[in-house]
C-alpha cells in the first residue's frame, strides 16, 4: 500500500465572479521514505497542494488516499485527528508559541493526542536532541536564533512520529549557512526512514531532495528523481538508492 495516492485533485476558489483553479487535476504517488521537493513559480499551487496533502483543506473534487484511507471527505474533527497522528508541519515562519519554552512548544502535539502524553517529557527531549537543541530546552522562542527556532519547529513536527513531514518554504526566512544546517537535519530524518515533502522555489534546496515535482497553473508538469551526479552533492548511500527507485516510479 502506498503512503499517498492522489488522483485528479482539483481545488477551485471563487473570488467574486472569477474562478481560480488552484489545483487543476493533480496526480501524485508518494512512497514511504520519499524525500520530495515540490517546486514551481509563485501562484502555481504549491501551498494549496501542501494544505491538501497535510489534511488542512479538502479538495473540490478528486481523491486523496493517505495510508489507503480516503481523507478527501472527512469532517473537521476527523481531519484534525489525522493531522495529529499522521502529519508533521514545518512552516516558513516557524509558528512557535512565544510565551512557551522550546520544550513546551515541542510537546504541543501531545496535548491533542489520544495517548502518549504520559511520556511527553522524554519524547520531547529526544526530539530536541535529534535536532541538536538539548542545550536550549528551556529557552523561549525570542531567546533563540532563526535556525534554532526552525529546529524547535522540526522537533515539534516529528514528535508524534508522523507518516509525512510537510515543510512549506522551511528555509525561506533563513540565511544560506543555516539553510544548509536545516537541510542536513531533514536528510538525517530521511535516513532514519522519515517521509519528507518540502515546498520550495530554491534550486539549492530542491537539490538536497531525491525527487522533484514541478507544478505550473495547478498541474504537475514534471516529476523526476534527482540523480547523485546531476545534483553534484555528497549523499548517503541509501538516499541515492532510494532516489533511483523513485525515479522509476515517477516515470510510469
Amino acid at each position: 500500500m502506498r503512503l499517498i495516492e492522489v488522483r485528479d485533485l482539483q481545488k477551485v476558489y471563487r473570488v467574486g465572479v472569477e474562478t481560480i483553479r488552484a489545483l487543476n487535476g493533480v496526480d501524485l504517488r508518494i512512497e514511504r521514505n520519499d524525500f520530495i521537493a515540490i517546486m514551481g513559480s509563485s501562484g502555481s499551487g504549491k501551498s494549496t497542494l501542501m494544505n491538501m496533502l497535510g489534511c488542512l483543506d479538502r479538495p473540490t473534487s478528486g481523491t486523496y488516499l493517505l495510508n489507503g484511507k480516503d481523507v478527501s471527505h472527512m469532517g473537521a474533527a476527523e481531519l484534525a485527528r489525522v493531522r495529529n497522528e499522521e502529519i508533521g508541519f514545518v512552516f516558513q515562519s516557524f509558528e512557535l508559541l512565544p510565551r512557551q519554552t522550546a520544550l513546551e512548544n515541542v510537546e504541543l502535539p501531545l496535548v491533542y493526542a489520544k495517548g502518549g502524553w504520559r511520556d511527553r517529557r522524554p519524547r520531547a527531549l529526544a526530539a530536541l536532541a535529534l535536532v541538536g537543541l538539548s542545550d536550549r530546552v528551556h529557552h523561549r522562542p525570542n531567546q533563540l536564533s532563526g535556525g534554532q527556532r526552525q529546529r524547535v519547529a522540526i522537533a515539534r513536527a516529528i514528535l508524534n512520529r508522523p507518516s509525512i513531514l510537510l515543510a512549506d518554504e522551511p528555509t525561506g526566512n533563513l540565511d544560506s549557512a543555516t539553510t544548509v544546517e536545516i537541510l542536513a537535519i531533514f536528510r538525517k530524518l530521511h535516513d532514519d526512514g522519515q517521509t519528507i515533502i518540502i515546498v520550495t522555489h530554491e534550486d539549492e534546496v530542491a537539490a538536497h531532495c531525491d525527487r522533484v515535482v514541478r507544478l505550473r497553473d495547478g498541474k504537475v508538469i514534471s516529476d523526476l528523481p534527482i540523480l547523485e551526479d546531476s545534483a553534484g552533492r555528497h549523499r548517503g548511500g541509501s538516499g541515492a538508492k532510494g532516489s533511483l527507485e523513485h525515479g522509476a516510479l515517477g516515470a510510469c
Binding site: G54, L56, A80, R81, R83, E95, L108, Y112, A113
Partner: peptide, 16 residues
C-alpha cells in the same frame, strides 16, 4: 488567530 491555526495544524479539533 495564528496560534489557533497552529494548534489546529498539530491536531486540535474544533471542540478542543
Amino acid at each position: 488567530t495564528r496560534e489557533i491555526g497552529l494548534r489546529k495544524a498539530v491536531g486540535a479539533t474544533p471542540n478542543a
